[in-house]
């Protein structure tokens, strides 16, 4: 299987893993890692599909999209970590809901 199919499929798998992690995992750091899986998954899809140019250099537009996406992901990760840190020092919790209490 060529990389132009393999990479996007791996990317889809990474993305799916990220979706599961973001929704199912409770620990906030796990959620941040899952969010980064989402990003890496999409970037892999973009890079893999950009290589379908029959021997020429890859299509530069998806590569530029990846570079923009990486910067945005860095920014989001930094904010998420800062928020988690602040939340942890305010509540001592590392999950959104305390284990026993279920609000609403």
């Amino acid at each position: 299987m060529s990389t132009t199919v393999l990479y996007p499929l791996l990317g889809a798998a990474l993305f799916a893993l990220g979706v599961w992690g973001l929704l199912a995992r409770k620990h906030l750091i796990h959620k941040v890692i899952a969010a980064n899986f989402l990003g890496s998954g999409v970037f892999l899809v973009l890079i893999g599909l950009a290589g379908r140019t029959a021997g020429a250099d890859p299509d530069p537009v998806p590569l530029a999209m990846v570079l923009t996406g990486i910067v945005v992901t860095v920014a989001l990760t930094a904010l998420a970590l800062a928020l988690i840190k602040r939340y942890y020092s305010a509540t001592g919790l590392d999950t959104l809901e305390p284990a026993e209490e279920a609000e609403q």
Partner: peptide, 27 residues
């Protein structure tokens, strides 16, 4: 979560496999 993840994986895999093997894009 598992269902949403599997559904995403399925539709994206199907879409990727349906794409032509060679494409110029905006190259």
């Amino acid at each position: 979560p598992v269902l949403v993840a599997l559904a995403t994986l399925a539709v994206v895999t199907r879409a990727v496999l349906s794409l032509p093997r060679s494409a110029e894009g905006l190259y």
